[in-house]
Nucleic acid binder design. Sequence first.
DNA 1: GGTAAGATCAGC
DNA 2: CTGATCTTACCA
Length: 227
Amino acid sequence: MAAPLGREFFAGDARCVARALVGKLLVHPDGRVARLVEVEAYMGTDDPGSHAFRGPTPRAAIMFGPAGYLYVYFSYGMHWCANVVCGPEGTASAVLLRAAEPLGGVGAMRLARSHGQKVLRDLDLCRGPARLAEAFGITGEMNGIDLVASAGAGAGNGPGAGNGPGAGNGPGAGNGRSLLWLADDGAGAGGPVVATPRVGLSASRAPELPWRYVVAGSSWASRPAPG
DNA sequence: GGTAAGATCAGC
DNA sequence: CTGATCTTACCA
């Protein structure tokens, strides 16, 4: 049983939320499920590594909004990366989803990730932020969606319930209408979670801060972590 | 209106 | 290690 995470889960300090998210599940309504093994916290106007450092620019504005929404940005002219907005409204922070262990819907992930006829190992499906986003079909069109189930998630068969992909089969049935959400199955991270410096930031622009949280020794992570 | 750098990945 | 590929934000 995997209980969807509510908005209050994301409303705290992004660094605490990030650490707590390791071991949680990312769930797509079509049955794709993966356990997060690596995330990073990005803060607001005090964090030079954050997109919100320059204030609420059009791209970063969503980071200043309420917690529990998806922030998707386009990276290096070809990749999408997925974040969860954290903290109280008016402050900016988010958690970047960097890597996960595929648990369900692996076929759909492989399909979403296959660019040619190349065969991808399970290990390569979600190992890295752009790979993870691609495996779950996350693109800019999903920027700003609510990752938290709306109240009264029960039936969801109203007059307007017809649109949207994959209405209500699979594990997603409990959530109502989100296109994507996070859940807790109680299993935890399966090992110690360690904090390391964030990946990919130029050292000259941002000081090294240990805001990357990763399961020690996990081979599902985008790069090895001490363990 | 021009430009440099970027929360990356895949192929040599 | 390097190329791909384009948006964002900053500067003139």
